[in-house]
């Protein structure tokens, strides 16, 4: 299947994204966001502490990043050093900028990453760096979970 990149206009917020380092993997959708997608849920917009978002009632906290992290820890992930592919593990990376957590990406078996861009499309990207920049900040928190 032909690799289809995001339209140029949608790439404007991501200075490191090029037509060569990513491809669209599903149509745009309001129904879920990056946090849900990394959590392998595709019918909820998930964010802690917001009245218009779904969040498990047993995960609460004041610190947004810590609360997001807890979601994945409760699902069996453990914090790890980096986003390098490791045999037998799936990984999640959380992007953070000066305003706090902004995005989560999930690693595929191939070592590439899958990301839901807000209410736009899901994309597969070769590296975590491809989405780094002012919009999402940097991927600085990494989690891994053994593949079942």
């Amino acid at each position: 299947m032909m690799r289809r990149p995001l339209p140029k206009v949608a790439q404007l917020g991501f200075p490191k994204l090029t037509n060569e380092n990513h491809s669209i993997s599903s149509p745009s959708s309001d129904n879920y966001n990056c946090i849900a997608w990394a959590y392998e849920v595709s019918n909820k917009w998930m964010w802690p502490g917001d009245p218009d978002c779904y969040w498990p009632s047993d995960i609460a906290g004041v610190d947004e990043l810590r609360t997001l992290l807890q979601l994945y820890l409760d699902a069996g992930y453990k914090e790890c050093e980096n986003g390098q592919r490791e045999d037998g593990f799936k990984k999640v990376a959380i992007y953070v900028n000066q305003e706090g957590p902004q995005h989560a990406a999930r690693q595929l078996e191939s070592g590439r990453w899958t990301s839901k861009l807000g209410r736009l499309e899901d994309i597969e990207h070769d590296t975590l760096e491809a989405l780094e920049g002012e919009s999402y900040g940097k991927a600085i928190v990494f989690l891994r979970k053994r593949n079942v």
Partner: peptide, 11 residues
Amino acid sequence: ETDFLSSPSRI
């Protein structure tokens, strides 16, 4: 400005 964002507080 916001369609690519996930954080409701930023949106």
